[in-house]
Design a protein around this nucleic acid. Structure first.
Lengths: 218, 218
DNA sequence: CACTTAATCCAACGTCTGATGGATAATCGT
DNA sequence: ACGATTATCCATCAGACGTTGGATTAAGTG
């Protein structure tokens, strides 16, 4: 029975590295390169070399270069969506517990977001690159950005409806916070003193929220 | 006498368009293309075509492609620096007139900045592209970004010293504001409803400042 | 065992790139 | 009028690019 459910090796030439699927290796290498230098500045031969395979192998696994690019984005953004969706759900459940709890939940939510970006700075690089590509921009916004923005925007709207805060333009607040966080990551990548900067940015974001909505109860 | 100070035509074949120096035409065309698609995605032949000249003419006036790229940045960032330097000087002179005037001066300063970015959205595109280029990043920061950041950061510090506000991390506040403004421009370029978005972003920025520092007197 | 399937690499293709050497034209200084 | 100077274009180069066809290897399947 176990043999039935075990992932039996498929026929054909075995992979070079049986521990990680070649596609994953290629995607990881390509993501790092694309994040660092962008679509046009990265050659497929370079990706192949970084992944330790031939350029034809890259094509075999990911098709065209644009498809590889898209696949890299999909992986990173799916991870971001997962983390944020869960964090937003937690924050939402705190809305009923009164204004103080709601504001504290917002603090926690942005902390999760900042943690994620600091942990995976390539997310910032890829987002910024996408924002600079007008044609791909729209499609990506629809698939990834808009749902996330809507999630948090509706969270703010609900908090406002619950009387926890006053927020006339939640989408602008959310967007500004997101860009401030991306700027923070870029500053870190540019060599700002790490630990101190991280701490201070969190304090700033909380000041930002407290200034807009009032602080949680002491 | 007038003939002595008049810009006498230099020898050699005349320019195609005597009204605008060829170098300016090329730089303008190149700036638009680079801002839209980035360094690697823009070919010199494309720049030449947009400027209405041959590719060799581009090389003759701007040297290598990297030099052309740098020249485009220098033009745009010099304009930004000029506008901001003057606005910051005006704000600084208002610091002595008390906390309310200081806060109002801050509002005016960010308004000038947002106006400038909305007016020249290519500034945002070029900045973002530079931030994604690690090696060029440092040099550019030193020449353009750092002086501007220092200008505004010291303004905040001076305002804090004058008792107009409390600001533990001025550089983070400034950076976050700058990135929020860039995000605003990107959203506009992506098709957000223009007039309303512009108005609401200004309201938001003022809310942001009032939240951090307290509002100016009513 | 033979047959199929899958993964990998090698070699090559046509295209486009940034750069350059050299010819031509038009203006100035003399 | 004549050489010097400058701007412009044409033609071309060597190299890198993304992509593809086909050979090779090694496993599963019967």
């Amino acid at each position: 029975m176990a043999a039935m459910t075990m992932p039996r090796r498929r026929p054909g030439r075995p992979r070079r590295d049986e521990s990680r699927p070649t596609r994953e290796v290629v995607l990881t290498a390509a993501t790092a390169l694309f994040a660092e230098r962008g679509f046009d500045a990265v050659g497929l031969r370079e990706v192949a070399a970084a992944a330790g395979v031939d350029v034809a192998t890259v094509a075999h696994h990911t098709g065209t270069k644009a498809a590889l690019y898209d696949a890299c984005f999909a992986r990173v953004f799916a991870a971001e969506r997962e983390v944020l969706t869960e964090a937003a759900a937690q924050a939402r459940s705190a809305l009923d517990a009164g204004p103080d709890a709601a504001r504290r939940a917002l603090h926690d939510l942005v902390d999760v977001f900042v943690d994620f970006l600091e942990d995976r700075p390539e997310t910032t690089a890829l987002w910024l690159r996408r924002w600079l590509e007008p044609q791909r921009h729209a499609e990506l916004d629809q698939r990834y950005a808009e749902p996330l923005y809507r999630l948090v925007t509706e969270l703010l709207t609900a908090a406002a409806a619950a009387g926890a805060l006053v927020e006339p333009t939640p989408h602008i607040t959310v967007r500004s916070l997101v860009w401030a966080a991306h700027g923070h990551v870029v500053a870190l990548a540019a060599g700002a003193p790490g630990a101190r900067e991280r701490r201070e940015f969190r304090v700033f974001v909380h000041r930002f929220l407290d200034g807009l909505y009032g602080p949680p109860a002491p």
